[in-house]
Design a protein around this nucleic acid. Structure first.
Lengths: 111, 111
DNA sequence: TCCTAACATCAAATTTATTTGATGTAATTT
DNA sequence: AAATTACATCAAATAAATTTGATGTTAGGA
């Protein structure tokens, strides 16, 4: 039997849980400084905080705070190597969130 | 002469103006109540505040405030008809912002 | 072992966003 | 014309996010 592709997909209406989850993710995106961090992370595979600091005009504790917000929203990942913490974008998550157009603006390596 | 579509669009790196603009848009999205409003607006072409009020558990002045945030971010539009103000989604803007996947969650009529 | 670099975390101060209840205004109804 | 509906706006109160400077922790080097 042929499986119909519905024109309108109302199978997955948004739930309160979705609202809560996406609120957090959009909050993480809703800050110029964090958008800039994302933009810089998009340039490389992985960047340590010590390399990030001179690229961005921000005291270290502040940078650390913003990285944490992004991390908790699962928009970036953290990997410890020795003394250094390397951060990288969670591309999959970001692409699930942002339009292609927006990915092109903020994640130039995506296009 | 044929116009080429570039495979990689690195022509438009993000600027500070982009950061500012998208900060505002993401801020508007970064709230459960506003996501719920968007979700409700997606059900109809256009909804007046008086119909919205009973659908959403919120004092009128609060609803008005949140609609304004969405309006200023250009995520929704307003049209006055007599005594009523009708609000509708700015689908084009939303699709320029959100992934297809996310559109399906919040804007079911999109899928 | 002691020192330093590379961070994270914390508490207090500050800024920004949201909520609330009251008031204002314009269109409609009576 | 007065009353009512459908909003927007405002100011004060509250809540949440951000910033700052200080302190804590861990790993590596001298």
């Amino acid at each position: 039997m042929k499986k119909e592709i519905p024109l309108v997909n109302n199978m997955n209406p948004a739930t309160n849980l979705d609202f809560e989850k996406y609120e957090q993710k959009f909050k993480a995106l809703a800050d110029q400084q964090r958008l800039q961090i994302i933009n810089i992370l998009a340039l490389k595979e992985s960047v340590c905080v010590c390399d990030l600091t001179p690229m961005i005009d921000m005291p270290q504790s502040k940078l650390s705070y913003h990285l944490k917000i992004l991390l908790e929203a699962d928009l970036i990942q953290k990997e410890k190597r020795g003394t250094w913490n390397y951060y990288s974008l969670n591309i999959k998550e970001l692409r699930g969130l942002l339009s292609d157009q927006l990915c092109c603006v903020f994640l130039p390596s995506c296009c």
